[in-house]
Nucleic acid binder design. Sequence first.
DNA 1: AGTGCGGCCTGTCCGC
DNA 2: TGCGGACAGGCCGCAC
Length: 271
Amino acid sequence: MPELPEVETTRRGILPHIKNHSVKQVVVRNRQLRWPIPASLAKQLENEKILDVERRGKYLLLITARGSIIIHLGMSGSLRITDSKTPAEKHDHLDIVFSNGNILRYRDPRKFGCVLWTGKDPGQHKLLKKLGPEPLSDDFNADYFVHACAGRKQAIKQLVMNSQIVPGVGNIYANEALFMAGIHPKRAAGKISAARLDKLVQAIKQVLARAITQGGTTLRDFTQAEGQPGYFAQELQVYGRAGQACPNCQQTIRQTVLGQRSAFYCAHCQK
DNA sequence: AGTGCGGCCTGTCCGC
DNA sequence: TGCGGACAGGCCGCAC
């Protein structure tokens, strides 16, 4: 489900409700996610205060003085702020209950996500250590990206979706950014000019930033921490629009499979 | 080192 | 209505 804008929207939504609040109780209903929720989580969090909520790529980090909770929402995960009057539903695997009565509730029907604990710098955790530079930071720039693409035979879309190159860009925004930059998703990354890669870098930044201001993209079930949908879906140019007219040239948008994922593109506008 | 996939799991939708 | 199959916002870990 969630790509960087949805994760960032979630971060902003939960932050004011849990920052500087202490954990009263941890309720695990099902620890069998992609990796098991550690049995020690409750003990580690007991009476700990959440000092901040950070994001790295698609990972959320709940920072305490003793360590950090690492959360990934996988394909279908979500976090909600709720309270004890709201009963947990089928796929609500974890509650973090705060002393002020707020509950941070983790739901993930497909269980592709994870909730982990690290006592060290979370940036050194195996899952975060190899992530590329944050796409909205200055470290993600044309120089970096041209270097990262040099000599690569892989399709550019697959590199854009590779978290070691640039984290946070999933299938929706990869398709949209390539359309904005006028680059065909199957073009070999190493054979694209620096000027066009620069354009792609700018497109990635632009589409992510715009989606964040719109509260993310709601396709099926994504909602913000308090239940509102995201409004970026209405701005999608190619994703999910196979058979429809390209907004730029009116030719038919095509769909193909690339690296086991759907690619949407306009063969006239993207070369 | 780079590349390509299998697999993890549930829900929904489509065609028959 | 029921059923099988395809597909879905991710990505690790393995084989080559």
